[in-house]
Design a protein around this nucleic acid. Structure first.
Lengths: 340, 340
DNA sequence: CCTAAGATTGTTATCCATAACAGTTTTCTC
DNA sequence: GAGAAAACTGTTATGGATAACAATCTTAGG
């Protein structure tokens, strides 16, 4: 237990005094300016070492206007994509010598605005919006116009500040896979309508079916939770004509699998199921889940790199940086049952 | 694309000038000091509103020595416990009016030390060590001695700065449940030896068996990943005498379930499996997983509250704040097969 | 009506590092 | 060896908010 008072460490002036130079010289040594004599530099370094001096970042930030801190806006939910994205951002930031300041927000426009302005207020150098909400970027544009910003929302429609996995392709890959197996059509358990990922996947699924000349069944909606997948699975399990289901996330897919199993539909013999995300557990469901792999961690890293270079060169033109996801075939998909 | 220069917002002096008062008065209004006339206060508020003035936190931090920022040290892994803990911390911090500055670290002592000193250097007001490593707290004590610190490591042996779920109880509950069902003994797939959670669970499992006078089988070790659970499951599945398994995390338990299923051992008829954590997906495994529930999100919140009050009253005595986990019985556990 | 106490507001110093500028010394060139 | 260029180092102003202190203005009591 530390009842002792927090003692302020030595300041630059203390180092300067001990080394017999001015504070400015210490600053120059610290910032690797060329115009310092080698002997002086060594002397200052020695004193810094001896006194255990560390530069005060707060003062630095005040005078330079740069905090070497990145702001990250995430949604207050705990799903796989959010957390691995956050991890990627952390790692990327560390590699780039930045610190991460994260705030969570709920869905509402005011909450978003508030969260972003809290970040700006905190003095971050740039912002990563890791909240894949429809129009999230638009809603806060009036705040972020003045500060480097990157979106990890994978909807390519959202403009040039985008980094992520191409969400349009994800659902196309999944739907095609099921059609290629011989299914007449594909049902879809979508995510919440206000999430851009969910919307992209929904649109791509629909478009793919149409392009293949198939009937487009009505979509069902979940909230990303396994429970919501389960509830929708209970409905789909009662419909004999359903032989193929695309679920908008692996977590919901687990719920769908469970519901189908409980109602006696065999996977993949009776019904094929495809998820999206390829979470760590996807290979260990029963049966192992065919899914679309997209590396959120990598996305986080790329977002940081993009943001950092934008901070360094604000004038430079930027282009979206979208990566294609890949199909991972496991055991939850097969050709439709013969009679169907 | 914002090529326009970042324009500094209005400063306190601008507000002061516009309101015809001194900067100090503005400061007093902002800080709710009593000695400001109501008319003055209203006038200042109006100008603040009109100019869209926001206080500069960097300057504030410099002069007060408080940044209203909490440092969080997490491990660079993406498992359920880590991410929900992080979420709880975020939410708690927001409620308390704090911002979160997070850094990740690997296992090594130097990485830990480095990460913590980065936080201190950043000027955080307090630190939450959310890295459940054996002796993590000890390793960084020389740095954290001077700054309020809280551990979310659930091993009650670690001293008074502890907040979390009592890890000792978790494994006891699980083991007892299996013994109560009639199993002769319980096998254990443990986590990595250097994680304190894993160590507590291992010890408690062992102790519980001994106290019940049962044979203690050799433990198996995983690395928290579903894959490692799968590998260990393949081993256990080949041993006919294994009828009950306690797995140190739900994620590994998914792997164990999968391996058992693949090798034809029925759950729970042939083998009972208990996990720990109660992740969202645990209710949707095949079969649904009996597990030990512990709310990491709640732990995160409590850690923040504790830390904030410690920051406010550094002198006050503190006591560990451990919460008991609960047993959630689902379908993966049953009495042992008759002949065993 | 005067003075002490209280309320309100302003002035100045401070936190720490850095940029801009200025001064001094060294080095080079013709 | 003078003059110019380069190298090195110091001084001062700056960023924005706040604490401590000082000053002014009210109000109440005698």
């Amino acid at each position: 237990m530390s009842t002792e008072q927090f003692t302020r460490g030595p300041a630059m002036r203390d180092v300067a005094a001990a080394a017999g130079v001015s504070a400015q010289t210490v600053s120059r040594v610290l910032n690797d300016h060329p115009n310092v004599q080698d002997s002086t530099r060594r002397r200052v370094m020695a004193v810094i070492e001896e006194l255990g001096y560390r530069r005060n970042n707060t003062a630095r930030a005040l005078v330079t206007g740069k905090s070497r801190t990145l702001g990250v806006l995430t949604l207050a939910t705990n799903n796989y994509s959010r957390s691995s994205l956050a991890l990627g951002i952390e790692l990327g930031a560390r590699e780039a010598g930045y610190t991460v300041n994260s705030v969570t927000s709920s869905l509402s426009a005011t909450a978003l605005t508030d969260a972003v302005s809290r970040l700006v207020h905190q003095g971050v150098d740039g912002i990563i919006i890791a909240a894949p909400l429809q129009d999230a970027a638009e809603q806060v544009r009036h705040i972020t116009a003045r500060i480097p910003t990157v979106n990890t929302d994978g909807s390519s429609s959202m403009g040039e500040r985008m980094v992520g996995v191409d969400q349009d392709i994800a659902a196309v890959l999944a739907t095609r896979h099921l059609l290629d197996l011989g299914h007449k059509t594909v049902w879809h358990v979508a995510g919440p309508a206000d999430w851009s990922d969910a919307a992209s996947r929904l649109n791509s699924w629909r478009r793919t079916l149409k392009e293949a000349g198939r009937e487009v069944p009505p979509e069902l909606h979940g909230d990303w939770s396994p429970e919501s997948g389960y509830r929708n699975g209970l409905i789909l399990a009662r419909m004999p004509e359903v032989t193929a289901i695309l679920v908008a996330s692996d977590e919901m897919a687990f719920g769908v699998l469970r519901a189908l199993t409980e109602l006696g539909r065999r996977i993949p013999e009776d019904v094929s199921v495809v998820g999206i995300d390829d979470i760590d557990l996807a290979a260990f469901s029963n049966p192992p889940l065919t899914t679309i792999r997209q590396s959120f961690e990598d996305t986080g890293r790329r977002a940081v790199h993009r943001l950092v270079s934008q901070i360094a060169h604000p004038e430079e033109a930027i282009a979206p940086d979208l990566v294609a996801p890949t199909l991972v075939i496991r055991s939850s998909t097969a050709p439709p049952p013969p009679g169907s």
